[in-house]
């Protein structure tokens, strides 16, 4: 039933591209890539119980790893993607090892500081990164079964986003239902107990941070390939807070929560930004209201009331 539900969600997303008007078509494509980012975040917050305030470091590692190799090295899509993923995985492993002895707020502050250092580095080395202004990637294409697809084509964009999102969603579902996922949840619930069942809890934490970093980096790399832009904004504090908000709003520790949260918030911001320049006020309000009134999030609330079986 669970796998069926997830496949049905993906089928609905696939069918939507046939009916959505151009504006929403583009929006949903973007939402799917960002939701993949939130899935990466949720692995850590929802399933391992670690709240990070520095996930932009992973998103940006994927983005810069991919974008810089295209921009400076002339890499193709596949090679650049591999570099982006390797960069995100490496950064994830380093952050995981560095934070292995921290808990609670200390973990949060260390991740925030490391991400800030990364952000400042993207500004400092602006000959390489072009800093705040960033750079635009050339038109890219992928070749599949002998046919070339331009990533700038909206239909290609949508389907690449769908494939990446679908892969992340199903992988996260597989992970949380696997033995490793069970250990991560055990870690979230009671780390000391888990150690005294014979698990090397430190290693699992590093693994969780690295996997979370890898998925977030995949989202960052995909974002840059599809939307052809790299800039330090994506390494900034706001891009660490977004996945936290998306995950909390949708429901931390639920596989479908990240998609729901990202969808709701992206549209909320879109509406608000039509009204005021200070549209980020909606981010603040959503954070406060979620934590006050719906700490379990949308999907978490559904699960508590009606559907205990939701993963």
């Amino acid at each position: 039933m669970t796998l069926g539900l997830h496949l049905a969600v993906l089928a609905v997303l696939a069918a939507l591209q046939l009916v959505l008007p151009p504006f929403h078509h583009g929006m949903v494509a973007r939402v799917m890539v960002l939701a993949a980012y939130a899935i990466g975040y949720n692995l850590l917050l929802g399933y391992t119980g670690l709240m990070s305030l520095g996930h932009a470091i992973f998103f940006a590692a994927g983005m810069y790893g991919t974008g810089l190799t295209v921009h400076h090295g002339g890499f193709g899509v596949a090679a650049a993607l591999v570099v982006g993923l390797a960069a995100a995985l490496a950064v994830g492993a380093v952050v995981g090892v560095m934070t292995v002895r921290t808990a609670g707020p200390a973990f949060l502050i260390v991740t925030m500081m490391l991400a800030q250092a990364f952000y400042l580095a993207t500004l400092h080395f602006n000959e390489l990164t072009l800093g705040d202004q960033g750079f635009i990637l050339p038109a890219l294409e992928v070749t599949l079964a002998g046919r070339a697809f331009a990533l700038a084509d909206p239909a290609v964009k949508y389907n690449v986003a769908l494939v990446v999102f679908g892969a992340c969603l199903l992988a996260s579902l597989g992970l949380v239902r696997s033995p490793v996922g069970r250990v991560l949840v055990a870690l979230r619930e009671n780390e000391e107990r888990t150690r005294l069942l014979g698990y090397h809890t430190g290693r699992y934490r590093v693994l969780a941070v690295a996997l979370s970093g890898l998925v977030s980096g995949l989202a960052g790399a995909t974002y840059t390939l599809l939307f052809s832009y790299v800039g330090s904004t994506f390494a900034g504090v706001l891009y660490s807070i977004y996945p936290l908000l998306w995950t909390l709003l949708g429901g931390a520790g639920t596989t479908l929560g990240p998609l729901v949260g990202t969808l709701l918030m992206t549209y909320a911001i879109d509406v608000t930004s039509g009204i005021t320049d200070a549209y980020l006020v909606i981010v603040g309000a959503a954070l406060v209201l979620t934590i006050l009134w719906a700490p379990a999030g949308v999907v978490g609330g559904l699960r508590a009331r009606w559907a205990r079986w939701l993963p």
Partner: peptide, 27 residues
């Protein structure tokens, strides 16, 4: 470390009950 000793067969049960309260008994 504690985890390695558990793997060798030294198993400790806590004085203050330490279980995963939000997981099912089977889990």
């Amino acid at each position: 470390g504690a985890a390695d000793r558990v793997r060798l067969g030294i198993v400790y049960t806590f004085q203050i009950t330490s279980i995963y309260r939000r997981l099912t008994v089977a889990d």
